[in-house]
Amino acid sequence: MRSAGTIRDKAHARRFADFLLTRGISARLDHGAEGYTVWVHDEDRLAEVRAELPRFLAAPDDPRYNLSRAAESLREQARQAEVATPRPAAPRPAPAVASGVPAAVRVGLMGTPLALALIAFSVVVAIYTQFEPTYSPRLAKLTIATIERIDVARIGWNGLDEIRGGEVWRLLTPCFVHMSFIHLLFNMMWIFDLGRQIEASRGTLTLAFLVLVLGCSSNYAQYLADGPSFGGMSGVVFGLFGYVLLMARFAPSAGMVMSANNALFVGIWFCVCLTGAVGPIANWAHGVGLVLGLGFGGIGVWLHERKR
């Protein structure tokens, strides 16, 4: 609440306050030694009131300021609304999402084009590659390095020569290579959930940045740990999970949600993958993606609170 100025005459002060009320501006009059100080509750309207006050003082009897009846009608409506609205017995905690509706629901399906494009491209790649092994000729330009089958038990590749030669897309394209229909379905379900939440809440550029950094970083880490024979969006998925988890917990007004059941499921699945019980898994991609996602989530929370 800020002061807009002082009016000496009491009647004029009330007249000006009535005028402001009809303009949707809430003000308070305080009597002092120099007259009546006009206090404006909404600081965003302060400049407007300060600009209007000199015009009022120059001609307080101007018919445009004769709005006492309209102002009193507004006050009566407010009093009736207050009486009609029951007051809760005790204060309740604020909802997890300020609007009550998750961002992905508010924008609708077509409001998240990048998330849908990631799913569509992954499906197209799956149809093209037919879930063949990573050493298949169909995948020669999609894996992080071109893989050759030496014998039944061994594969070979020439380091990252192709990337050094300019094929930089190989750092990201393994994300779109899936080994089975279940592998594809599992990852796309999470992209549909997590990716759409982020894009709807933080924008397409934020999702693009996260996918690019998480994908390239997790793929490179998996290559360093276990060679080029891997694929899938899981590193990105775990990163997006970490991001949404922190945003939903510490910045709920951003419009992202993460149920306790989903968080528990992802945590258990991460641990199960580490055991090797479900076969060869790109655990380094999972781990690096998750750590980076949590880090970006922390930054996202800080930026969101700073803007508020």
Rank of each mutant, 00 (worst) to 15 (best):
I7K: 10
W302N: 14
A17H: 06
A277P: 00
E199L: 13
G232M: 10
N283W: 15
Y36A: 11
T85W: 11
G232Q: 09
R196E: 00
T275S: 11
S99M: 11
P228C: 15
F270K: 10
A4R: 13
F230P: 01
A208F: 15
P54Q: 11
A47M: 14
P63A: 11
G111P: 09
Y128M: 03
L116T: 04
G156K: 07
C273E: 08
A103T: 01
H12G: 09
V168M: 13
K307C: 01
N219W: 05
A47P: 00
G298T: 08
F250V: 12
L142R: 10
L274W: 11
G235I: 06
F19E: 05
V291H: 04
A145D: 00
A71Q: 07
A84W: 02
F176N: 02
A104E: 10
G24S: 10
S136A: 07
F176G: 04
E82A: 11
F19G: 02
A140Y: 02
M179K: 13
P228G: 12
M233T: 02
S201Q: 09
V236G: 05
V101K: 10
P63I: 08
L292N: 05
A4K: 15
R45Y: 05
E162G: 09
V97L: 14
H304G: 05
A104M: 04
A51P: 03
S3P: 03
F230V: 12
G100P: 02
V38E: 07
P91Q: 12
V237K: 13
V97Y: 13
S26N: 13
A71W: 04
S253M: 06
L57F: 11
P113I: 03
W169P: 01
Q130R: 12
L139V: 03
Y243V: 03
R196T: 15
S253D: 10
L246Y: 02
A70I: 08
M110Y: 12
H12R: 12
A96H: 06
V211C: 10
T6H: 07
M179S: 07
L246R: 04
R14F: 09
I182C: 08
G276L: 12
E199D: 04
G287M: 09
G276Q: 10
L160P: 00
P54V: 08
A251D: 03
W302P: 01
A285K: 04
G276S: 07
L185E: 01
V266W: 08
I155K: 08
A58W: 03
A285L: 09
R154S: 07
R45P: 00
I127S: 00
H12V: 00
A98R: 14
L114M: 06
R170W: 07
A115G: 05
F16C: 01
W302G: 06
L210E: 01
L207Q: 03
G35K: 06
P86M: 14
P133K: 13
G279Y: 13
A90P: 00
P54F: 14
A153T: 10
S180G: 11
V237Y: 15
E162M: 12
N66C: 01
A145H: 00
N66F: 09
A27K: 01
L292E: 02
L207R: 03
R138I: 00
A98Y: 00
L274V: 04
A4W: 01
S68P: 03
D18N: 12
E132S: 14
G298S: 14
G100K: 14
A11P: 05
L160A: 06
